[in-house]
């Protein structure tokens, strides 16, 4: 009977402790790729890997170092080198100041020396939060000094690469950093020392076309975008859409330009293992 519909009593459950419980579970974060949400605490424990789509979020130098080097072992270097405005590009200095404030970093690369599972090494981490980790004079100079220090102290170098390319705001000087850092990496190599690059999302442009591709060992994080030209630039040139897996770590590995694609979870151990094997070979 129709009347029964109106008589029917319907219950809904009200969780009176809901807000309390949510507070305990902590804040939510949204995956930058699949846009699904998860607990920040859990996301961090999973080294910023999304539990839904499995992709890695980008790490800033602080986060990268925290999951890579032995606690308390990292010593910052080259922070005294800082940015100026060679082209008098309007707003450039202000932009740098804002980014310094926002990221807590002085420039797009953090350099220093530390240990990974006891293995001493020079380390640089590029910061995609800082003008897309573009390479200007300061990034070039800091990396060059790191190579020089490593050559002097006979230490390996590991660079966590990420970059949109050369920093246009500094014009031709940015282009010259490609030659400068490649040259310094060459001197380090001539001294018989180990250089490892870890290509992280995104490694492109002038950084790909210089020191990122010059490692004795080139590792890449799963799913990272790695390439020379930007996807849209290529699509514009050839006039068609590119396949989805184009310029991924796996694509670059398949074409022979990366030694090994690694998961973020195994990266620290893989690095330590490679460092250790080279230490034994050198007979130190």
């Amino acid at each position: 009977m129709l009347i029964d519909l109106f008589k029917k009593t319907r219950y809904i459950s009200v969780d009176l402790d809901y807000n309390e419980r949510q507070k305990e579970l902590g804040p939510l974060v949204v995956c930058p790729f699949c846009k699904k949400s998860m607990r920040a605490k859990e996301y961090e424990q999973r080294l910023h890997q999304c539990q839904h789509c499995g992709k890695y979020g980008r790490l800033n130098p602080e986060q990268r170092l925290a999951i890579t080097v032995d606690e308390g072992s990292f010593q910052l270097m080259n922070e005294n080198v800082y940015t100026t405005n060679p082209l008098d590009f309007k707003g450039y200095e202000e932009k740098i100041a804002v980014l310094q404030e926002k990221t807590g970093c002085t420039e797009a690369v953090t350099t220093g020396v530390g240990t990974i599972l006891g293995e001493k090494t020079c380390i640089a981490v590029m910061n995609s939060e800082f003008l897309m980790a573009s390479m200007g004079s300061v990034v070039g100079e800091r990396l060059t000094r790191l190579f020089e220090y490593a050559t002097e102290e006979r230490l390996p170098v590991i660079i966590f690469c990420a970059s949109g390319g050369a920093r246009m705001h500094e014009g031709i000087l940015s282009l010259m950093q490609m030659a400068k850092v490649s040259g310094a990496a060459g001197k380090h190599s001539q001294a018989g020392l180990l250089y490892i690059t870890v290509l992280t999302d995104p490694t492109t442009g002038g950084v790909t076309a210089s020191f990122a591709m010059l490692g004795d060992v080139i590792l890449a994080e799963k799913n990272a975008t790695i390439g020379f030209a930007g996807r849209r630039v290529i699509e514009g040139t050839i006039g068609t859409e590119l396949p989805k897996d184009f310029q991924t770590a796996e694509f670059v590995e398949k074409h022979g330009f990366v030694d090994k694609v690694v998961s973020r979870q195994e990266l620290k151990e893989v690095l330590a293992k490679i460092l250790k094997l080279h230490r034994l070979e050198a007979g130190n």
Partner: peptide, 26 residues
């Protein structure tokens, strides 16, 4: 500029230029 295309990426445009810079330097 260096060519931007599928083949260029597949065959390592970045690596080719990087190697040029390092080898020329020495």
């Amino acid at each position: 500029g260096a060519y931007c295309g599928i083949g260029a990426e597949e065959r390592g445009q970045g690596e080719a230029i990087a190697k040029s810079l390092q080898v020329m330097m020495a």
